[in-house]
C-alpha cells in the first residue's frame, strides 16, 4: 500500500526543493541584510522538508533511490512540483507574495497532516507546521508592508497579485497520484483547504489594502510533469554537478 504514496510524496518534496531553490537565488542579493538572512532561513527549512520527504519516499519505494537520486536524478517531465514553485523570482514583491501563498497553504496542509494515519508523515508535519507558521507570518508582514507602503510598492504588489493569480488554483486540484494516500488518511484532501486559505489571504489583503483577483483561468500541469519553460533552466543549475560528474561521492 505505502508504495502507492511514493509519487505523491515526491510531488510534495519537489514543491519544497524547487521553491527552496528559487528562494536561495536571493542569497546575497536581497534588499536589506535582514532579508539576506531571512530568505535563506526559509529556503533552508524548505529544503530540509524536501529531504525528509524524499528520503521517506525512497524508503517506501524500496528501489534504492536516496534523497539525492530523487532530487537530482530525474528528467524534467518526472518532476511533479506545482508550477507556482518554479516561476522565476521576479521582484521582492512577487517573491514575498508567492511565499506567503505557499506558506499559508502549507501551514493548513501540515496542520491536517499532523493527524495523518502514517506516523512518519505525522512527525514530518509536526515539525514542518511550526516552520510554515513562521514563514507565513514573515511573508504576510511583508505583503502588508509593501501593499500599504509607498505608491511604488503598492503598484508592484498589485502587479504580483495579477501575475500569480493563475497559479494558486493548482494548490487545490487533486493530485492524480495522491488518491490512495488521501483515501487512507495519509495526506489531506487539498480541495478541503481552500476556504481556510482564501480566508487567510483575504484577511491579509485587507490589511495590505490589496484587491484579490477572482475567477482567473488556473494554470495546471505541474503534478503531471508539465512545466513552464523556466523549469529546464532551473534544473540545468540544480543538476549541474550530478550530470557533469555522475556516480561520485561529494
Amino acid at each position: 500500500m505505502p508504495a502507492a504514496w511514493v509519487a505523491a510524496l515526491i510531488g510534495l518534496a519537489d514543491d519544497h526543493l524547487i521553491l527552496g531553490h528559487r528562494l536561495s537565488e536571493w542569497c546575497g542579493h536581497a534588499p536589506m541584510l535582514e532579508e539576506d538572512l531571512a530568505m535563506p532561513n526559509i529556503a533552508l527549512d524548505l529544503i530540509g522538508q524536501a529531504r525528509g520527504l524524499y528520503t521517506y519516499a525512497g524508503d517506501l519505494e524500496g528501489a534504492g533511490r536516496d534523497e539525492d537520486a530523487l532530487a537530482f536524478g530525474r528528467l524534467e517531465r518526472a518532476y511533479r512540483n506545482l508550477l507556482i514553485c518554479e516561476l522565476p523570482n521576479g521582484d521582492f514583491a512577487h517573491t514575498m507574495l508567492r511565499q506567503f501563498y505557499f506558506a499559508s497553504f502549507m501551514q493548513l496542509f501540515w496542520q491536517e497532516t499532523e493527524s495523518s494515519t502514517d506516523a512518519t508523515l505525522a512527525a514530518i508535519a509536526a515539525k514542518a507546521v511550526k516552520e510554515a507558521q513562521y514563514h507565513r507570518r514573515h511573508c504576510a508582514e511583508w505583503v502588508i508592508r509593501l501593499g500599504d507602503g509607498t505608491d511604488e510598492s503598492a503598484r508592484r504588489m498589485a502587479e504580483a497579485v495579477t501575475l500569480l493569480a493563475p497559479y494558486t488554483g493548482e494548490f487545490f486540484m487533486a493530485d492524480p497520484e495522491a488518491g490512495g494516500a488521501v483515501a487512507a488518511g495519509v495526506l489531506p484532501d487539498t480541495k478541503a483547504l481552500q476556504p481556510a486559505w482564501q480566508a487567510d489571504i483575504e484577511q491579509v489583503f485587507a490589511a495590505a489594502k490589496l484587491v484579490l483577483r477572482e475567477n482567473v483561468y488556473a494554470q495546471k500541469g505541474g503534478r503531471r510533469g508539465l512545466h513552464t519553460e523556466a523549469m529546464g533552466h532551473l534544473l540545468a543549475q540544480l543538476q549541474f554537478m550530478q550530470r557533469s560528474f555522475p556516480d561520485m561521492t561529494w
Binding site: 536561495s24 542569497c27 546575497g28 535563506p40 529556503a43 529544503i47 539525492d68 554537478m241 550530478q242 561529494w250
Partner: peptide, 27 residues
C-alpha cells in the same frame, strides 16, 4: 553564493546555504 544553486548534494547545498547565511550574520 555562486554555488548554492549548483551544490552537488542536498546535504552540501544546505550546509553551503547556512554558511553563506552565517557570513551575512557576521556582516
Amino acid at each position: 553564493g555562486n554555488w548554492i544553486t549548483r551544490a552537488p548534494t542536498l546535504r552540501r547545498k544546505v550546509a553551503l546555504l547556512a554558511k553563506v547565511q552565517d557570513e551575512g550574520g557576521h556582516g
